[in-house]
């Protein structure tokens, strides 16, 4: 770990443009290059399975095109986006609310270790050993937005730290994108409010890439090992038009926010033994995902 002062040649130039930036930063790994395009992907810690998969999808798709992903390494959206970036072989930067030597939250250990071993940088304005105090986090958000060229909010409640990041971004004159959600979904209310206030609508990673001035190559569409991002066209038959009507119906009922086998059986009227049997086959084939709590969703 090293301490980089303002004025050192390594100190990110982009931070010096804004007021209230720290006089120096602790760093493990490296800062984004001056010419590197950087997107911040932020969102709720207790996001829905849908939010998690979208964060991963955007992180992956942007990183594939060489965009650095900056976030806060929190569980939920932050972590998913950064893991998506690493999966794509890209770089990701984590700005922490504690000392850079502390992995917080502990559940992000794998991510922390991978970043430390050369896939980006761990950045903190706090002394090594500083505890993750609650007030640190909203403050460090100004560094996240300052490092980024564009801020993307995946899922946020009405009152959310992610909206603070978006607020900083607007103050710093950057574009803000938000992933639209259902109007009734409490986890999307913050995003929908941002859109109502004029934020960009992030339907696909292409829009964000365009904003960053990065061209979309058609070849990139196919690079998706886990089926998280854009499903390669023609990989397999579309389960929605499956010849088996029960299978098609179950696939149709799969909810992005998770649905129990119980609810599928009740809504479709299909016998419970058939529902269970078909669901697990779809999980094994990759057409459905299960969140460990018995809730099934479509992998987006």
């Amino acid at each position: 770990m090293r301490y980089v002062r303002r004025g050192d040649p390594d100190f990110p130039e982009r931070l010096t443009r804004y007021p209230a930036m720290p006089a120096g930063l602790y760093l493990i790994g490296r800062f984004p290059e001056p010419e590197e395009r950087v997107a911040a992907i932020v969102g709720s810690r207790n996001c829905t399975p849908y939010g998690r998969s979208q964060a991963r999808r955007f992180g992956f798709a942007l990183a594939v095109r060489g965009v650095g992903i900056v976030s806060g390494m929190a569980s939920g959206v932050d972590c998913a986006a950064q893991e998506g970036a690493l999966e794509a072989g890209g770089r990701t930067y984590a700005v922490l609310g504690c000392g850079a030597d502390i992995c917080y939250p502990a559940s992000s250990r794998r991510l922390y270790d991978r970043i430390c071993s050369g896939s980006g940088g761990i950045i903190s304005e706090y002394e090594p050993g500083a505890k993750p105090l609650a007030w640190h986090f909203p403050v460090r958000n100004r560094i996240i937005s300052a490092l980024a060229d564009v801020v993307l909010v995946i899922e946020a409640r009405e009152k959310s730290g992610s909206l603070i990041t978006a607020g900083y971004a607007l103050d710093q004159g950057k574009s803000v994108y938000a992933l639209p959600g259902r109007s009734t979904d409490p986890m999307s209310r913050g995003c929908n409010a941002l859109i109502a206030d004029g934020a960009g609508i992030a339907l696909d990673p292409e829009q964000v890439l365009m904003e960053l001035g990065v061209e979309m190559r058609s070849a990139d569409q196919g690079e998706d090992p886990d089926g998280w991002g854009i499903r390669p066209a023609g990989k397999a038959k579309d389960p929605e038009n499956d010849p088996d009507p029960e299978r098609a119906e179950i696939y149709r009922l799969l909810d992005p926010c998770g649905i129990t086998a119980e609810e599928i059986a009740e809504r479709s009227g299909i016998a419970p033994e058939r529902v269970s049997s078909i669901l697990i086959r779809m999980v094994l084939e990759g057409y459905a995902a299960e969140d460990g709590n018995g809730f099934f969703s479509k992998p987006v």
Binding site: N46, G76, D185, P186, M187, C257, G258
Partner: peptide
Amino acid sequence: NPCPCGYYPDRERCSCTDEEIR
């Protein structure tokens, strides 16, 4: 219950984090 408050995944009522559920 699926989580400490009991209402997961109803996010209107449940604000348990993944960590809390774990």
